[in-house]
């Protein structure tokens, strides 16, 4: 570990602790929340502020210690912030589909499902 100024060390350390703490809070939420749809929100803590803080710490540290700009951490950040919404949306839709198919839990009905009921008692007009 090469020597870096004290303020850089403090900044890097503080940012990494901040990011790690938010990641931990997200995972605690994942363990504590009591329904799947509430739990979907929890991992976004780790992928937004958690990743931003830790990757920023990494970028600062390598920029200072290697004496040249190290910005490739941006790649991970861009990649994560594009892929996380996609995976969460797909997973939530899969869960919605399964809950509707089994009609378990209180999930909102798909549009069209309530229409069928209306048609069943409508034919008296025609």
């Amino acid at each position: 570990m090469s020597e870096v100024p004290v303020w850089v060390a403090a900044l890097v350390g503080g940012l990494s602790i901040l990011g790690a703490a938010f990641t931990l809070l997200g995972c605690i939420g994942l363990a504590r929340f009591n329904s799947f749809y509430a739990r979907v929100h929890a991992p976004t803590l780790g992928t937004s502020l958690g990743s931003i803080a830790i990757l920023l710490a990494s970028a600062i540290y390598f920029t200072v210690s290697a004496q040249r700009p190290a910005v490739h951490e941006v790649l991970i950040l861009v990649f994560i912030s594009i892929t996380t919404p996609v995976t969460l949306m797909l997973l939530a839709r899969a869960a919605l589909y399964r809950d509707r198919a089994e009609s378990s839990g209180d999930v909102p009905l798909q549009w069209g499902e309530d229409i069928v009921v209306e048609r069943a008692d409508a034919p008296s007009e025609g």
């Binding site: 570990m1 020597e3 060390a9 990011g19 997200g26 995972c27």
Partner: peptide, 25 residues
């Protein structure tokens, strides 16, 4: 000095992330 700060803060953050992994598990 700065090596000590880095050492302990990184150790602490690795512990926190490790706890996060346990919660996910």
């Amino acid at each position: 000095m700065s090596a000590a700060i880095l050492h302990w803060s990184l150790l602490a953050s690795q512990l926190l992330v490790g706890l996060a992994m346990i919660a996910a598990t």
